[in-house]
């Protein structure tokens, strides 16, 4: 098992290196960094000096090594647009995106798993058919349309909830959180719902499909035949076995939620990393785009590692070797 994890860690390092290389290429080869940084009035000599100072004349491999080294030390460079350190910009936006992502994930799990179990156990029931229909509609509508519809109903027509921004936030040692104020929660509901609906549908359908398969398995039939109470049968026996494949998908989804919150963030003007990324694209702020890429990749890798660990926790077959 240690070997398994070590293998995964090494793989992750390579993934991160590949992404760093992409980010570096973006920075180095999409346009000329020097002409991006300087205006028309800068002399050619000054441009050359700057090029030399920045080390842009060094060999390619050397530049990449330096880029990676800087990243590892937490030095992400400066934004073209605001002249601020990119690290600070990302750090100030990250809490908003993470909180949004976590709440969206929780919604999708807390609703999706029970709904999946229910629809699996009563496959022919009226409620099941209704749930399946509604979620199918939910998944067919693009995220931004759902967001706009939610804004229209709850924000404009009913006026219950704010339609943009994070509302009240509290600064906890550099982490701006909306979890501690009522306003913050109110502002969080609509974007989190928007972001979570698609994941919810996916989770529900996956849990349903897996659960239905598990319910047909021999060990469930055997447990039924020896009169194990129904509650235990469904939740202890069946659900645990259902979760093994479901966890992988949920893990990947969470990575996706973080990465693709861009649309939701722009609909709700949510000051997260996604919105920052959109602004950076508009101003061709390449250092920010590169770092965003690296940070998102890091989240994916991290979540996948956690998923692997969860696997090992849930499934004893990975933890304890077979009988010899």
């Amino acid at each position: 098992m240690v070997f398994f994890l070590a293998k995964r860690l090494i793989q992750s390092v390579f993934v991160m290196l590949a992404v760093a290389f992409l980010a570096f290429s973006l920075f180095r080869f999409v346009g000329d960094p020097v002409s991006q940084m300087t205006g028309v009035e800068t002399s050619v000599q000054d441009q050359e000096r700057l090029r030399e100072d920045l080390g842009l004349n060094d060999p390619f491999a050397y530049q990449f090594a330096r880029f990676t080294g800087d990243m590892l030390r937490g030095d992400f460079g400066f934004s073209y647009r605001t002249r601020q350190p990119v690290a600070e910009m990302i750090a100030s936006r990250m809490p908003a995106t993470l909180e949004l992502g976590v709440v969206a994930l929780l919604i999708s799990l807390l609703v999706g798993i029970p709904a999946g179990v229910y629809t699996a156990l009563r496959p022919r029931g009226f409620a099941t058919q209704a749930i399946l229909m509604i979620t199918l509609v939910g998944v067919s509508i693009p995220t931004f349309v759902i967001g706009i519809m939610l804004i229209f109903f709850f924000g404009v027509q009913l006026g219950w909830l704010p339609t943009f921004g994070r509302g009240g936030t509290v600064n906890l040692g550099g982490w701006e959180t909306s979890f501690l104020t009522v306003d913050g929660w109110r502002a969080l509901i609509l974007p989190a719902l928007t972001l979570g609906v698609y994941q919810l549908t996916l989770t529900m359908r996956l849990v349903r499909a897996e659960m239905m398969e598990v319910m047909q398995s021999d060990y469930i039939r055997f447990a039924t035949a020896r009169g194990v109470p129904m509650g235990r049968l469904y939740f202890r026996h069946a659900l645990a076995n259902t979760m093994v494949p479901v966890i992988t998908i949920i893990g990947l989804q969470f990575g996706g939620v973080i990465a693709f919150s861009i649309v939701t963030e722009s609909v709700f003007q949510w000051p997260g990393m996604g919105l920052l990324f959109l602004e950076s694209i508009r101003f061709v702020d390449i250092p920010v785009m590169g770092v965003y890429l690296v940070v998102i990749a890091f989240f994916f890798v991290l979540v996948n590692l956690i998923v692997d660990l969860l696997y090992v926790l849930i499934d004893p077959r990975l933890r304890i070797s077979d009988v010899s």
Partner: peptide, 13 residues
């Protein structure tokens, strides 16, 4: 049941 490989819940002691 027929197959002892599949008739026990693999996740429980």
């Amino acid at each position: 049941f027929q197959d002892p490989q599949t008739s026990l819940n693999p996740l429980m002691r």
